[in-house]
Simulated assay, not measured.
Amino acid sequence: MDESVVVAPDWLATRLEDPQIRIVDVRDAWEYEGIGHVPGAVSIPFDSYRDESDVDRGTLPGADAFAALLSEAGISPDDTIVAYDDTHGVFAARFVLTALEYGHDDVRLLDGDYSAWNRAYETTSDVPEIEPTGYEAEPLSREESPLVDLETVEDALERDALFVDTRDTHEFEEARLPGAVRFDWREAVDDETRRLKSEADLEALLDEHGITPDREIVLYCNTARRISHTYVVLQALGYETVAFYEGSLTEWLAHDGTIETGPVVDE
């Protein structure tokens, strides 16, 4: 697993005193304050970097708003950010995607969540002292970004692109993009350890779904949260041609895009 994308708890545990490793807890503020957190972590709740008012594509909060969040958290552009939640990493993965989109070079997902960390390492209720920074975001260009729009998705449907739907079965059967395969994002997680499955197991699992590195892959869900997790997993495994449909099915349906319904044989 590529450590520039996903890091294990023991990797982080040996770097808690490194001033350039900034740990971000994206759970609700009451969880951060009341339950405890990874030592040194700052609180940037999920709702604070998600905006459904069309300020930017999909639910992105806008570069200025995101930069203000990182400034208040004392984070600088050169820092290595490690994000976590307590929901198998799906909310933290959305933070990772958002930070990458706004130009932060080194942001990683903690393999596992708060509960997984708590099984092996200490936690704390102490809030670190924060010195605000003047963070300036540098959003990726449309050419650099993995995010794709409606028109690009329509074009991809005309090619041999593989559309991957990361939602639940009932959602998939109610409406999906034509030809899509379903890969529930949670399939990548080991329920017992709360961490990602092994690299070999993940590769075998993805292969069973036809999700292979040689394919052009387009990810979607409803509002681009769940695909963030799958996107990070594929990046950690070295997949290179992965597009991220930020508008997802919500935008597709709003524009009367063609859909398929019903169960799929052998699903």
Rank of each mutant, 00 (worst) to 15 (best):
V218Q: 08
V189M: 14
F183T: 01
T123I: 14
L177E: 06
R182Y: 07
A200L: 10
G179T: 07
T152E: 13
H170Q: 06
T123V: 13
E143N: 06
E143M: 02
R167D: 01
D207A: 15
S115C: 00
T123W: 10
D126E: 15
F163P: 02
D155E: 15
G112D: 04
D191V: 06
T193L: 14
L177W: 02
G210D: 08
E136C: 01
T166D: 09
G112A: 03
E199L: 10
D184H: 14
P146G: 07
D113G: 06
Y114H: 14
T124L: 11
E122D: 14
Y114K: 12
E138D: 13
C221T: 01
V127A: 14
R194N: 08
L150A: 03
E171V: 00
V153I: 12
L219I: 07
E216H: 15
E154A: 12
E174K: 11
L177D: 01
R142I: 03
E138Y: 04
E143K: 15
R195T: 13
E174R: 14
H170C: 00
Y114E: 08
V153W: 09
F172H: 10
R119Q: 13
L206W: 03
E129C: 00
R176N: 02
S198W: 08
L150W: 14
A161W: 03
E151Q: 07
E129A: 11
D168Q: 15
V164Q: 08
A175N: 00
A180C: 01
V181H: 08
F183P: 02
L206F: 07
D191Q: 14
R194D: 04
W117R: 06
E144C: 02
A156T: 00
D191F: 14
A175K: 07
L177T: 00
S198K: 06
P213I: 02
S141I: 05
A137V: 09
A116C: 05
E187V: 00
V127L: 11
L196D: 01
E216C: 06
E208G: 06
D126S: 15
T123R: 11
V127D: 13
C221A: 10
